Simulated assay, not measured.
Amino acid sequence: MKLEIQNHQKEAIKNMSKKLLLFVAISFSVVACNDKTAPEVKEMKTAYVDTSELMKEYIEAKDLEAKYKAQSEEKGRQLEAEINRFKQDAANFQSQAQANGQEWAQKRGAELQKREQQLGYAQQALAQQLQQESGKEMDSLVSGVKKFIKDYGKKNGYAYIYGTGDAASVLYAEDKYDITKEIIKALNDKYKASEKSEKKDEEKK
Results as ranks from 00 to 15, higher is better:
residue 72 S to Q: 01
residue 63 D to F: 04
residue 108 R to K: 07
residue 64 L to T: 13
residue 82 E to T: 11
residue 88 Q to F: 11
residue 143 S to Y: 01
residue 89 D to K: 07
residue 127 A to N: 08
residue 135 G to W: 07
residue 19 K to V: 08
residue 138 M to Y: 00
residue 168 A to P: 13
residue 45 K to L: 08
residue 78 Q to M: 14
residue 115 R to F: 02
residue 154 K to L: 09
residue 46 T to W: 05
residue 101 G to H: 02
residue 99 A to S: 04
residue 33 C to F: 14
residue 198 E to G: 00
residue 77 R to H: 13
residue 88 Q to P: 01
residue 132 Q to H: 09
residue 152 Y to P: 09
residue 150 K to G: 08
residue 180 T to H: 10
residue 36 K to E: 04
residue 118 Q to D: 01
residue 155 K to H: 10
residue 84 N to C: 13
residue 171 L to K: 12
residue 6 Q to V: 04
residue 41 V to D: 11
residue 50 D to M: 05
residue 139 D to P: 15
residue 201 D to M: 15
residue 92 N to V: 10
residue 170 V to E: 10
residue 38 A to E: 10
residue 155 K to W: 00
residue 177 Y to Q: 06
residue 125 A to I: 07
residue 94 Q to S: 14
residue 166 D to P: 00
residue 29 S to L: 08
residue 64 L to H: 11
residue 156 N to L: 04
residue 139 D to C: 03
residue 93 F to S: 01
residue 58 Y to E: 02
residue 97 A to T: 09
residue 102 Q to N: 05
residue 115 R to S: 05
residue 38 A to C: 00
residue 15 N to W: 04
residue 22 L to V: 14
residue 166 D to Y: 10
residue 45 K to P: 07
residue 87 K to M: 10
residue 35 D to M: 02
residue 78 Q to I: 14
residue 73 E to N: 05
residue 169 S to K: 11
residue 144 G to M: 09
residue 14 K to S: 15
residue 32 A to I: 05
residue 12 A to M: 04
residue 186 A to E: 05
residue 17 S to N: 11
residue 77 R to S: 15
residue 33 C to Q: 05
residue 56 K to M: 14
residue 169 S to L: 13
residue 164 T to Q: 13
residue 85 R to K: 03
residue 154 K to W: 05
residue 74 E to W: 04
residue 73 E to M: 01
residue 167 A to H: 11
residue 156 N to S: 01
residue 118 Q to P: 02
residue 204 K to C: 00
residue 139 D to K: 07
residue 91 A to N: 10
residue 184 I to D: 01
residue 195 E to F: 00
residue 188 N to W: 07
residue 119 L to Y: 03
residue 61 A to N: 09
residue 202 E to P: 10
residue 61 A to H: 00
residue 12 A to N: 04
residue 30 V to H: 03
residue 49 V to D: 11
residue 92 N to I: 00
residue 8 H to V: 15
residue 82 E to V: 04
residue 159 A to V: 01
residue 29 S to R: 02
residue 201 D to C: 12
residue 200 K to A: 08
residue 203 E to M: 12
residue 47 A to L: 00
residue 112 L to R: 13
residue 10 K to C: 01
residue 135 G to F: 02
residue 127 A to Y: 13
residue 101 G to F: 02
residue 99 A to L: 01
residue 106 Q to T: 15
residue 152 Y to Q: 02
residue 12 A to S: 15
residue 177 Y to F: 12
residue 18 K to R: 08
residue 12 A to E: 04
residue 19 K to G: 08
residue 157 G to H: 00
residue 178 D to R: 11
residue 174 E to D: 12
residue 183 I to G: 02
residue 87 K to W: 05
residue 84 N to P: 09
residue 151 D to G: 08
residue 111 E to T: 00
residue 28 F to E: 07
residue 42 K to A: 04
residue 155 K to P: 02
residue 51 T to Y: 07
residue 24 V to F: 09
residue 93 F to Q: 07
residue 13 I to F: 04
residue 169 S to G: 05
residue 99 A to K: 05
residue 49 V to Q: 12
residue 109 G to P: 15
residue 149 I to F: 01
residue 85 R to A: 10
residue 14 K to I: 08
residue 147 K to S: 07
residue 65 E to Y: 14
residue 170 V to R: 05
residue 102 Q to H: 10
residue 176 K to W: 02
residue 30 V to K: 03
residue 2 K to S: 10
residue 205 K to G: 12
residue 186 A to F: 06
residue 171 L to Q: 12
residue 164 T to P: 06
residue 165 G to I: 08
residue 96 Q to G: 01
residue 188 N to I: 06
residue 153 G to K: 12
residue 149 I to V: 15
residue 10 K to I: 08
residue 173 A to K: 02
residue 81 A to V: 09
residue 38 A to M: 09
